[in-house]
Write a protein that binds this DNA or RNA. Structure first.
Lengths: 133, 133
DNA sequence: AACACTATGTAATAATATAACATATATTAG
DNA sequence: CTAATATATGTTATATTATTACATAGTGTT
């Protein structure tokens, strides 16, 4: 069975920028992206930010808020940018998307003191990765 | 020998900036802080950022990463900036620190696929607050 | 007093992100 | 098909957030 996700055909700029982020081994910052795609005709910050906004919205990439950087989503179970969790190494800055059914279930069902549930969350764990320990 | 747990007496700038954030009903941004404390002699962004860094480090305030803003810690059980959770209203931008023993326990003990535990985390929930629903 | 450490003051600049406006392309309704 | 609507692009300028570099001052320890 195929994915339930709606198919989003990316536009030219979105595709260029997604491809770059997707093949990067680490989160990319907006101006690093800009520098890399200038040879492809994307000249201005706003062109990059617009594509990034859209890609985040449709869940193709995620923003690592504590780093102002973007990574491709490699987690088919993540609910289109609504429920994200990452581990971040404080030495080498390696970022990995966490895919844990238990964690997502726990957080999706979490209610605060007032019994309020939330439609969206972002979780960032910090520590040392295997190599840096 | 001195005590192991150093008492963090705030310096002049730190105290001025902490007081401002502490009495604010909403998260404050660095340049809003700067504007507010200029009459007290703090003139430059760096003076603000240095105080903010220190206050975050000692756990008196927290940074809301998705908003680039700072709020005072009102959660005596939060482990000095090591384990933070917030709810954020996407309409009115009200931010509340979440104090849930269950949540902190779950996250503090969370292990990823490789069995790795993390020394620190930050969680931001998004949704609509009571008033905005 | 000498030392190390932390905090402060100041100017300049780097890095991140958006506003405003014009044009073009794609999608949908009639 | 064509007009209307919505979405995407191009471009310039500017706003917002944060740091580098260097000089000075205060604090605590030996």
């Amino acid at each position: 069975m195929k994915t339930m996700h709606k198919e989003h055909t990316l536009t030219k700029n979105q595709q260029i920028i997604f491809d770059l982020i997707d093949k990067s081994s680490e989160p990319m910052k907006a101006y690093a992206i800009l520098f890399n795609v200038q040879k492809k005709g994307i000249k201005a910050p706003l062109q990059v930010y617009r594509a990034l906004d859209k890609l985040v919205e449709i869940g193709k990439i995620h923003k690592i808020e504590s780093r102002n950087a973007f990574i491709a989503c490699h987690n088919s179970s993540c609910q289109v940018a609504k429920a994200t969790a990452f581990s971040i190494c404080e030495i080498c800055e390696k970022v990995t998307e966490i895919s844990s059914a238990g964690l997502s279930k726990y957080l999706a069902n979490f209610k605060d003191k007032d019994g309020m549930k939330y439609s969206k969350y972002n979780l960032e764990f910090f520590g040392l990765c295997k190599k840096c320990r």
